[in-house]
Amino acid sequence: GETKIIYHLDGQETPYLVKLPLPAERVTLADFKGVLQRPSYKFFFKSMDDDFGVVKEEISDDNAKLPCFNGRVVSWLVSA
């Protein structure tokens, strides 16, 4: 499998796309960081919350699996 991750960088209009050679349910924050090489950023991901619906959730645990929608991951990188 392959996972497409779209990421928005510090408010830039056009998002970036990276592809990881892993199925979406196995991709972790560490996998994503390894491709990006951007150490001083906070990582937020499109996520579903039972109370609020669609939210941007910050993930900082490198072992955390990334939230996935239709085989895609959507993220926002914010300068720390």
Rank of each mutant, 00 (worst) to 15 (best):
I59F: 05
I5K: 00
E58R: 03
E58V: 05
G71M: 00
V54L: 11
G1A: 11
I59G: 03
F43S: 07
P39S: 13
H8Q: 02
Y41S: 03
K33L: 00
T28V: 05
F45Q: 03
V78W: 09
E25Y: 06
W76A: 04
L22V: 13
I6V: 10
Y7E: 05
D62S: 02
V54I: 14
Y16H: 15
T14E: 15
T14Q: 14
F32R: 06
P39H: 13
L29A: 04
F44D: 02
P67F: 04
Y41K: 02
L66N: 01
F69T: 08
V73H: 05
K46L: 10
R26E: 13
F45A: 06
D49H: 14
M48Q: 13
K65I: 15
L77V: 12
G53V: 12
V54M: 10
K56C: 14
G34L: 11
L20V: 14
T14P: 11
F52C: 15
P15K: 08
K65F: 09
V35Y: 10
G11P: 03
M48K: 13
K46A: 13
E58T: 07
T28K: 06
L29W: 02
Q37F: 07
K33H: 04
D10Q: 06
R38H: 12
P23T: 01
P15A: 10
P15L: 04
V35Q: 09
K42F: 13
L17S: 15
L29C: 09
G71H: 09
R72D: 09
L66Q: 06
L17C: 15
P23G: 02
D62R: 03
K42P: 02
D31W: 04
V73I: 14
N70Y: 00
M48D: 12
D10P: 12
D31I: 10
E2W: 11
E25Q: 08
S75W: 05
S40M: 13
D31Q: 04
F45D: 02
L29K: 00
G34D: 15
G53S: 14
A64F: 02
G11V: 00
G1K: 14
E2K: 03
A64G: 04
T3N: 01
V35L: 10
E58W: 03
L22Y: 06
L20P: 00
E13P: 12
Q37G: 13
V74K: 00
P39E: 12
D10F: 03
G1H: 01
G1I: 08
E2C: 12
R38N: 15
Y41I: 01
G11F: 05
K19E: 12
H8P: 09
T3C: 05
N63W: 05
W76R: 03
Y7S: 01
V54Q: 09
Y41D: 03
Y16D: 03
F44E: 03
T3H: 01
S40L: 09
P23V: 02
Q12E: 15
P21V: 02
V35R: 08
S40W: 11
Y7L: 02
D51N: 15
P23F: 08
F44P: 03
L20M: 03
V27L: 08
L9F: 05
Q37W: 06
E25H: 12
E57L: 14
L66G: 02
V74N: 06
E13G: 08
F44N: 04
I6E: 14
A64C: 08
E2M: 09
K33R: 03
N63I: 02
A80S: 13
T28F: 08
A24Q: 12
S40G: 14
S79N: 11
Y7G: 01
Y16K: 13
V18W: 04
F45G: 02
A30P: 05
A64T: 07
V73K: 00
D50R: 12
N63H: 11
L29E: 02
G34I: 06
S47G: 08
P23I: 11
V27Q: 01
L9T: 02
N63K: 10
R38D: 15
R72T: 15
W76K: 03
A64P: 04
D49P: 14
I5E: 02
S40D: 15
D10L: 01
Y7I: 02
F45W: 05
D10T: 07
H8M: 07
F45N: 07
K19Y: 10
F69Y: 13
E58K: 04
F32N: 00
K56Q: 09
V78K: 11
